[in-house]
Design a protein around this nucleic acid. Sequence first.
DNA 1: CCCCAGGCTTTTC
DNA 2: GAAAAGCATGGG
Length: 297
Amino acid sequence: MQTLFSGQTFLWEIHGNVKQFYSAIIKSIPCIINEISENEFIIHSTKNSVDGVTIPDFISRYFTLDIDTKLAFSEDFSRLYPELWQLLAPYFSLRIMRQDPFETMISFMCAQGIGMHLIRKQVTMLRQTYGENVSVSFLGNKIVLHHFPSPEKLAAADPALLSRCTNNNRIRARNIILAARSVAEGRVDLDALCNPALPLSELRSILCRNGGIGYKIADCIALFGLGRFDAFPIDTHVKQYLAEWFNSTTARRSLSQATYLALDREARTLLNPDLAGYAGHILFHCWRREVKGLRTF
DNA sequence: CCCCAGGCTTTTC
DNA sequence: GAAAAGCATGGG
C-alpha cells in the first residue's frame, strides 16, 4: 500500500463518507481515501497504473484537476455579486468527480424526495448487499471494501430484498432493477451517452425514458457520471439559492417542468454555459453549508 | 401532526 | 399541452 496522491478540500460525492473513514473504491483501482483533516485527504493504492495510465494522471482526470473552477462563472460574476463571490472563495477548490456512469445512475435514482443522510445510507447498503468484496490492509488493519454492484447483479436482484436498500421504497427498488436490466441488456448504452457531442436536451430525454428518472436526476447523471459539466441539475436547494442570491422570480414558482427549463436558461446567463453544472455544484454546497447550516462533506 | 428532504408520475383542466 | 394533486418513506 503506497500513498499516491494528496490534496485539499475535495467534495466526496454520494458514495463516500470520509468523516467516518469510509473507504471507497475508484473504478478499477482498489484504493483507500483517507481524510487527514477537514481540508485534506490522501489516496492509497496497491497499484501503480491502470490500463497504462499512471495513477497520478488517472487521479487528475478523476478529480478533474484540469478544471479552473473560477472559470465556471460568468466573466462579470465577481463584479455583479461581490459579496457572494467572497462567500464562495473557500469553495473554489471543491471538485466534481468523473464517476462511473452506472454507479452514478443508480445512486441518483436513490436521491428523490429524501434527505442526504438517507441517500448515502441507501447507496452504502446497495454496495454491501450486492457489491463484490475487496479486502485490503491499511495501517495494520484489514479493511473490507465493496465495489458498486454491476448492472447484471442488480438486474437479477429480488425486488423485496433490494427494497431494504432503498429505504423500503418498493417503487424505487423496481425502477432500479428495471434500469439495471436496460443497461445489462444494452438497451441503454451508457458509453454512447458519454459522447460530448450529444446535445444536452437529447441526452436528458434519453435518460428520462427510464422510470424514476426525471429532468433533475437525468441532469445529475449527466453532470456526475457522464462528464457533462454543462448539465445544471435543479433541485430544491438550487431553486432556493436562485431565488435568494439572484432574485429570480421564476425560482419562486413551483418547480414544474416549464419552471425547470426556464431556470436552466436563467442559470446559463449567470454562469459559464459550458461549466454551468460545475458552478452550480459549488453554489449548491456553499448554500447548504453557509446559509442553511448543513454539513455535507 | 406538521413539514421537509439533492422528485417523479398520474390525474385533471 | 400544462398546472395540480398524488405518491412514498424516514427524520426533525
